[in-house]
Simulated scan of single mutants.
Amino acid sequence: MSRIKTFIDNEVFLGSQRELLQIIINHTRDKKKKAYYAINADCMLHYWNDEAYRNIINQRENLIYVDGMGVIYAQRFLNIPTAAQRIATTDLFPALMAELNERKSPFKIFLLGGKDDTAEKVRKNFSKKYPNVEIVGAYNGYFDKKEESKKVISHINDLEVDILFVGFGNPLQEKWVDEHFHLIEASTVLTCGGLFDYYSNHVKRAPIAMQKIGFEWLYRLLQEPKRLYKRYLFGNIKYILKVLTLKLVK
């Protein structure tokens, strides 16, 4: 497994999506409980400014992988070990479903996150597309985290879930998983941001060419400029300046 320290204080998975899929499947099969967290430029801004989030990402037992060309460009610029490819969670999810469908895997999957019936729509869509995959439930992400988390987790545990996807947005989702990890009985927990919005047809993905060169953020910005301009315009500038600072003090 290709893992080595990069510009966070933890090892980062640097292999391919195919390799990561195999790791997830093997760990789930062997009941090796693990959380999987993706990092991109926006995540790195939280990492540098949010101590609680930083401590979660730095936990050795968590597997951290690269979902963002901004991180790969920074790795190259800083001349440190670089990820073999960007592993977008929006690509990882259907790839995992396809692999499990082909294997007729017995794993049970639960989708947690999104507004209203967004996750349920994804569950129905993917259950039809991958009939050999057992997506046993879905629940929206706008429940009261303080009052209802234990009830939601109890429901997930009652379904004997093996793989749990959590899409609350970064860093809320990572903090929630970390806080409740001891209660969650699923072997595999993957945070997935706005994944469910894409596969419920609420949000369109950027063309492949824009994804490959790291401009998927621009496509998203053009779709929702009022909501995303701070994150993508100001955030990208802050990220670039931080990377330049790292280069100067290296």
Rank of each mutant, 00 (worst) to 15 (best):
Leu14Arg: 07
Phe93Asn: 02
Leu221Trp: 11
Glu160Met: 10
Val203Trp: 11
Ala41Tyr: 04
Glu148Arg: 13
Ile208His: 13
Val152Gly: 08
Tyr229Gly: 11
Tyr37Lys: 05
Leu96Met: 14
Arg103Val: 07
Phe165Met: 03
Gln211Asn: 11
Ile109Trp: 06
Ala35His: 11
Ala88Pro: 08
Val136Lys: 09
Lys5Asn: 12
Asp144Phe: 11
Leu172Ile: 12
Ala88Gln: 10
His46Phe: 15
Ala74His: 04
Ile23Met: 05
Gly194Glu: 01
Asp9Lys: 15
Val161Cys: 00
Lys212Cys: 06
Asn10Val: 03
Ala83Leu: 04
Ala209Cys: 11
Cys192Tyr: 09
Asn62Cys: 06
Lys238Phe: 07
Gly194Val: 13
Tyr229Pro: 05
Tyr229Ala: 05
Arg227Lys: 14
Ile8Val: 10
Ile24Phe: 00
Ile24Lys: 00
Lys34Cys: 14
Val136Trp: 11
Ala95Asn: 12
Ala83His: 07
Arg54Val: 03
Val161Asp: 00
Lys238His: 10
Leu183Gln: 15
Asn40Ala: 02
Asp42Thr: 14
Val203Ala: 11
Lys151Leu: 11
Asp162Val: 05
Ile163Met: 12
Glu216Val: 12
Gln85Trp: 03
Lys33Thr: 04
Glu224Met: 09
Lys115Ser: 14
Asn26Lys: 15
Arg86Val: 02
Glu148Pro: 01
Ser105Trp: 03
Leu164Pro: 04
Gln85Ile: 06
His27Trp: 09
Phe77Ile: 06
Phe93Met: 03
Pro131Ala: 04
Leu63Arg: 08
Val66Leu: 07
Asp30Gln: 15
Lys108Tyr: 08
Val136Gly: 09
Leu111Asp: 01
Lys128Tyr: 13
Lys230Ala: 09
Phe126Ala: 10
Lys150Tyr: 07
Tyr130Asp: 07
Asp162His: 13
Val189Arg: 09
Val161Asn: 01
Phe234Pro: 00
Phe143Leu: 04
Ile64Glu: 06
Leu164Ser: 03
Gly113Phe: 03
Lys31Ala: 12
Leu246Asn: 12
Thr90Lys: 12
Met69Trp: 11
Ala119His: 01
Thr89Gly: 15
Leu233Glu: 07
Lys5Val: 08
Lys145Pro: 09
Asp117Tyr: 09
Asp50Ile: 08
Ser149Tyr: 03
Lys238Thr: 01
Lys121Pro: 00
Phe168Gly: 11
Leu21Val: 08
Thr28Ser: 10
Gln211Gly: 13
Arg205Leu: 10
Leu195Tyr: 09
Val12Ala: 06
Val133Asn: 07
Lys230Ile: 04
